[in-house]
């Protein structure tokens, strides 16, 4: 690899840098959407959180997602090192946790429908925030699945694992979003 330094700006940074930059900007944009979501909670129901919100479920879902971020990270490292076995193992593990999370949200919806349906203030917020977030998780699972099928025969190596990096970065983003949504939905108390 050459390390020649060009004085003048080269025509265009390389595609990899541009893709990274583009993804980061997209995340900034999406974060702005989540900010809007979160702020609406304080408008619609102020600081009110019903007693019968399942705290255990909320905490469990949070832990699940945090752990999945760790395995996603391991998958990325494995792809970078060309470690096929671990790449596959960790991607699968992450996807499973993602699917489990979606199941958890489904259960949450089932319960919530009885106590605070969407026609109440808290229900409105709960269904909207978890709904939008679950859609993100679902897209993350799809992306990881995609990466898995493309990469299972060794398509990614040390020089060429950007798709893995991008999918994993998306996954981390979705997790961080949950880290803000969780206290907003469950922990805020008067």
């Amino acid at each position: 690899m050459t390390t020649a330094v060009r004085k003048a700006l080269p025509q265009g940074l390389d595609t990899g840098t541009m893709n990274r930059l583009g993804l980061w900007l997209f995340l900034v944009s999406d974060a702005s959407f989540f900010l809007a979501l979160i702020s609406s909670r304080f408008f619609v129901v102020r600081l009110e959180t019903p007693e019968d919100v399942s705290q255990i479920l909320g905490l469990g879902l949070t832990i699940l997602l945090l752990v999945s971020s760790l395995t996603a990270y391991r998958a990325e490292v494995a792809a970078e090192h060309g470690d096929q076995a671990n790449f596959k193992r960790y991607i699968i593990a992450t996807m499973l946790m993602g699917i489990l999370f979606l199941g958890g949200v489904g259960f949450e919806w089932h319960e919530a429908y009885k106590h605070f349906p969407p026609s109440t203030g808290y229900g409105t917020i709960l269904f909207t925030l978890t709904g939008v977030h679950a859609t993100h998780v679902f897209s993350g699972v799809l992306l990881l699945g995609f990466i898995y099928f493309k990469g299972k025969n060794g398509a990614y190596g040390p020089d060429d694992y950007y798709p893995v990096e991008a999918a994993v970065k998306w996954w981390h983003f979705v997790d961080v979003a949950w880290v803000f949504i969780y206290p907003t939905l469950y922990l805020v108390q008067i």
């Binding site: 003048a8 025509q11 940074l13 541009m18 930059l21 997209f26």
Partner: peptide, 18 residues
């Protein structure tokens, strides 16, 4: 569009276009 133009301006300038 906004994202595309931000990246374009940051990354696609010709040599000397500081």
């Amino acid at each position: 569009g906004g994202m595309n133009f931000l990246v374009t301006i940051i990354a696609k300038r010709a040599p000397g276009m500081t």
